[in-house]
Design a protein around this nucleic acid. Structure first.
Length: 271
DNA sequence: TAAGATAAGAGGGACAT
DNA sequence: ATGTCAGTCTTATCTTA
């Protein structure tokens, strides 16, 4: 006996509960899954000992009903799960669109999210934060140059929380990500300031030499790229200020200066 | 005005306990 | 698991050319 139960109350907390509901609710775990499923239109098993007319149900039927009831409670959990997934997928889709992330990378992010959800990583964290981390991880692995800052710009989540979730993701999904080359940050910054290809190539050479001399480890690649561009511009007598590079790269002038000093000292450059 | 210098504070990695 | 330490980056402010 499946009874469609219409509920006109928007607040699920105020709903009249049957025993069945109470039971299924306890299985769902998180209160949030309860607040989002069904939107007040659940299909429920009420009594499984009597039919709609109050007549007793045969024992064999009751056994089958009990199994159905169990299946239902599982499917209601799965609705919460689906909802979470749908929410995350929407977010990943929007983010990918705004950051011009290729479809394949978006798919990779979605796969990461499904895995994270499956192993319970999302629990205790915001869906958006984990989804952001998945997008970032997918970009890193596919060598699509996007920073956490850029992702945070289009997300309600703070940079700090995204990076926390990102580390979580790396640990529990056992991901191996390549260290980004500073060169990959060059075109973005250079194009923003209209710096020509010749100067970009010069900056790339500077970075390559710096990498050969092992000067680049544990340094922010964007900062390195900005500093290399600054040096290249000075050499080519292209007029660019540190402030402009700072604005274009999202790295502070101080950091650019520090990298710039390191580079000219390490590579024995003279300007 | 652009660049350099300095200091305080945050966040994270490495390592030890 | 927690604490400490060195290194990095940021913010802010002041100085120099």
């Amino acid at each position: 006996m499946i009874v469609a139960k219409f509920n006109y109350c928007d607040d699920p907390e105020k709903r009249a509960f049957t025993l069945v509901e109470a039971e299924s609710r306890s299985r769902t775990g998180l209160p949030t899954s309860f607040s989002i499923f069904d939107k007040g239109l659940p299909t429920l098993f009420t009594s499984i000992s009597k039919d709609a007319y109050g007549k007793a149900i045969p024992y064999n039927t009751m056994i089958r009903m009990r199994r159905l009831k169990k299946l239902q409670s599982q499917s209601r959990f799965s609705q919460g799960y689906e909802k979470n997934l749908a929410n995350a997928m929407t977010h990943i889709g929007l983010l990918s669109e705004r950051l011009h992330i290729p479809c394949a990378v978006k798919e990779q992010a979605a796969i990461f999210y499904r895995k994270a959800l499956k192993i319970g990583l999302v629990r205790g964290h915001s869906i958006h934060a984990i989804a952001d981390a998945c997008v970032y991880a997918a970009c890193r692995i596919s060598k699509i140059p996007r920073t956490i800052n850029e992702i945070a710009y289009y997300s309600p989540v703070e940079k700090k929380d995204i990076s926390k979730c990102y580390r979580l993701l790396l640990r529990y999904l056992h991901l191996k990500v390549p260290i980004p080359r500073a060169q990959s940050r060059l075109p973005r910054v250079a194009n923003t300031l209209g710096i020509n290809m010749e100067t970009q190539k010069k900056a790339a050479e500077i970075l390559q030499e710096a990498q050969r001399l092992k000067m680049t480890s544990s340094k922010d690649p964007t900062g390195l790229a900005a500093a290399a561009l600054y040096i290249a511009c000075c050499m080519n007598e292209t007029k660019v200020t540190q402030k402009q590079l700072s604005d274009a790269s999202g790295v502070t002038e101080v950091t650019i200066r520090n990298r710039y000093k390191d580079l000219i000292r390490g590579l024995h450059l003279d300007l």
